[in-house]
Design a protein around this nucleic acid. Structure first.
Lengths: 226, 226
DNA sequence: TCTGATATGTACGGTAACCAACATAAAGTA
DNA sequence: TACTTTATGTTGGTTACCGTACATATCAGA
């Protein structure tokens, strides 16, 4: 059987086998909140074909996504780093499945050298992604950031079509819903995407890449260097 | 002898003693670049009374600080995470001293459990700080962010007075020099700070805290929970 | 088929920060 | 002392995004 998560599949077979008894394949659904900000982490997740957003909630009304994780990574890094509290909100962005493990069980086995190596490699990548996002939020306009977001999501979902509303996107990008509508309609006018009522289709990947800020390429290159 | 860095001082005495032969106390100066973005990490640093900024350079002309590290942490985390390339620019922000260690020597001893525990605790804190900054850049105005920056620097330098120009600050905050002048002059009008030609004095800490966004308090609380 | 809920479209005034250019002031140097 | 460099102050026009409000379109269920 192919192991459907890149952190797990990088482990020596025997290390994976030692874990597999505690791994449970679960369905996760769009909008599901895996962790609340400041809340306890009960399970760690290795996405298979799901995608999860990591979000900083700055106050009850305002939020911005700072990281996006698919089957290249893991959700629940704080546990590997010795904390069982998540500073971030973790929300399922793409419905699918994930391998889940009890946090305390994970803590016990997380000092295996091979697993550690993979986790820390991913920690470094995620940190880089978050740092890039911090600067991106500072310098780039909504259209560029929207294009980047769609591309990053596409890369992780591996599909050109996905369900989500402008309202939802506005919380990811940390702007008003109206700003998303305007940016999306500009991209649609150029025929790079099309959308209607909660469904978005990527029509022209290259066109989108030109619309996105180079944060997209920068982060993608970091993830490719493995 | 008191060990003047909190990561090192948290180690069992024998672990610290094993490291100390390879640790070298060095002076670092304002403006000194410890790592270039994309460059090799030759040494890791444990600040003693110096302060270092971690900066994302988005293009040659534009940069924004994403993290600030004093004697509570370490510079060169990627090495602990298995990479010897820094994605970020690391610039000395407050002149002082640091304990320095050769990166390859550090890599060899960095799997000691107690050291790992401390490093990962700090990794988690730094990640949280960067994530908070990402949202802060999105939502808060320059005056709030300037106040936050001054407070964070003060906490790490442990002094109410420090040398830096509006020009320098503009690169930290990722805004134009003019925007810094305006924000600083607003804070000066309220008598929270005073400044002249590259010298800034904090006059009223409480006043500054009220001017800062609550990102200051949020991050500070995370660092206090240890 | 009607009704309410949800999703998207559009419009208006307000504002923080942008870009560019120039003015003044303080420090360093010949 | 005069001259240059560096730091800060100020101004005018521009823009992206904000807050608010309301209009239209699509879907889901009674």
């Amino acid at each position: 059987m192919r192991i459907p998560n890149r952190v797990l599949s990088s482990l020596p077979r025997k290390d994976y086998n030692a874990m597999s008894a505690r791994l449970e394949l679960v369905d996760v659904e769009f909008g599901q909140r895996l962790y609340e900000p400041g809340g306890r982490i009960r399970h760690v997740y290795f996405p298979v074909d799901s995608v999860v957003s990591l979000i900083t909630m700055i106050d009850p009304a305002r939020a911005a996504e700072v990281g996006l994780v698919g089957n290249e990574g893991m959700i629940g890094l704080p546990v590997a780093l010795g904390s069982s509290i998540s500073p971030l909100l973790a929300v399922v962005q793409g419905t699918g499945t994930a391998l889940r493990m009890d946090a305390s069980a994970f803590r016990k086995i997380s000092d295996k050298p091979a697993l550690q190596r993979e986790l820390f490699r991913f920690t470094h990548l995620l940190m880089s992604q978050v740092a890039q996002t911090a600067a991106c939020n500072r310098f780039h306009v909504v259209t560029e950031r929207l294009a980047r977001w769609l591309l990053m999501t596409r890369d992780r979902l591996k599909e050109n079509e996905f369900r989500l509303t402008h309202e939802f996107l506005s919380h990811m990008l940390g702007v008003r819903r109206v700003a998303v509508t305007q940016a999306a309609s500009a991209l649609q006018a150029k025929k790079f995407i099309s959308y209607k009522r909660g469904q978005i289709v990527i029509l022209d990947r290259k066109g989108l890449e030109h619309s996105a800020c180079n944060c997209y390429g920068t982060v993608k290159k970091m993830y490719a260097h493995r």
